[in-house]
Design a protein around this nucleic acid. Structure first.
Lengths: 186, 186
DNA sequence: GTCTATATTAAGATAGAC
DNA sequence: GTCTATCTTAATATAGAC
């Protein structure tokens, strides 16, 4: 087969989709190779650490996306409600309207490297902090704001599971719609 | 090695734990054999369908448990709030205080048989119906009661993910504590 | 930097002794 | 009904050509 050119960006986007669909253990190097058009040996050249390293690269990519599209837009000049609404739309896109799983979910079952587990935990803490900061602006104390933030995230995560099992995304939609209320209500 | 006696009950309980921890793809027949003290061939004798059949048997077991400890106690003479509190304590035990995953979560990622996916969906619908029935008693219309029920379940599922990723179960505790309020408030 | 080819280990699955 | 032994397939991983 002729040499292929597959950018890291495209490769990681494809791999992200696979991991979200089949979970860490459900994705083999062959599956990654077939889906991206590269050979297994080429994947090892790019990521000498194998599947662990690929999952780690994906996680880093997603964290970067969250930084730019969730954490950063949450601080700034516009009214808090408007900022949260904007972020909610970004999340709607990331989760494809509730039809794509969260990496935090599928990668947090045991089997993954300690390093990745820690990265997921750190990312989740950053997410909680970002949401809590907004809740604080609306007059909540630190502890209450943190609870509100956790509540918001856990609803998003839970609605994705419900949507996946039931095969309908209405609950995810409802959660996103209520997100501004939840985080900015006094 | 001498013959072993492992009851189906004990076998399925051990297997349930493994699937909740490692997910469907993360559990091999060898792992099941090692953990239960049976040989792989014995597992095939008991469950000719292999891993799919074992996962299915576990799912059926769990549905039976939910029927007895969640669905059934939700109908009956006692005040609604009290019934929900009772069920919340049962759920606390089933999820080991928030430290054990939900089968719905770990088995609903692709890779599992169509039959099992349908069983999970049916079980989830039953759970929603059971919760919705209680919400209806408190004066909500059908649609609102169903939303309340989905909200309750999605919070439980989401808090389990948050607890798993963060390594602390406080959010699961909070969700269970608010469960009676959520389902029985007018 | 990607390929073909292959080594090694583990998975799912079955045959046949006891 | 459980075991040992074995088959087949698929997974991770590496060597070496181009």
């Amino acid at each position: 087969m002729a040499h292929r050119i597959v950018s890291d960006e495209v490769f990681l986007a494809t791999a992200l989709d696979l991991f979200r669909t089949y979970g860490f253990e459900g994705v083999s190097l062959k599956r990654l190779a077939d889906a991206t058009g590269l050979e297994k040996a080429s994947l090892y050249y790019r990521y000498p650490g194998g599947k662990d390293a690929i999952a780690m690269a994906i996680a880093k990519d997603v964290v970067t996306w969250f930084q730019a599209n969730v954490f950063d837009p949450l601080v700034g000049g516009e009214p808090a409600r408007k900022r949260v609404s904007f972020v909610a739309e970004n999340l709607r896109e990331f989760y494809a309207g509730g039809s794509k799983a969260c990496l935090m979910d599928v990668l947090s079952i045991r089997g993954v490297s300690e390093e990745l587990q820690l990265a997921l935990k750190t990312a989740m803490q950053a997410w909680v902090s970002a949401f809590a900061q907004v809740a604080k602006e609306s007059g909540h104390g630190s502890a209450a704001a943190r609870s509100k933030a956790e509540e918001a995230i856990l609803r998003i995560e839970g609605s994705l599971i419900l949507a996946r099992v039931l095969g309908e995304t209405a609950c995810f939609d409802r959660v996103l719609k209520l997100l501004p209320d939840l985080l900015t209500a006094a």
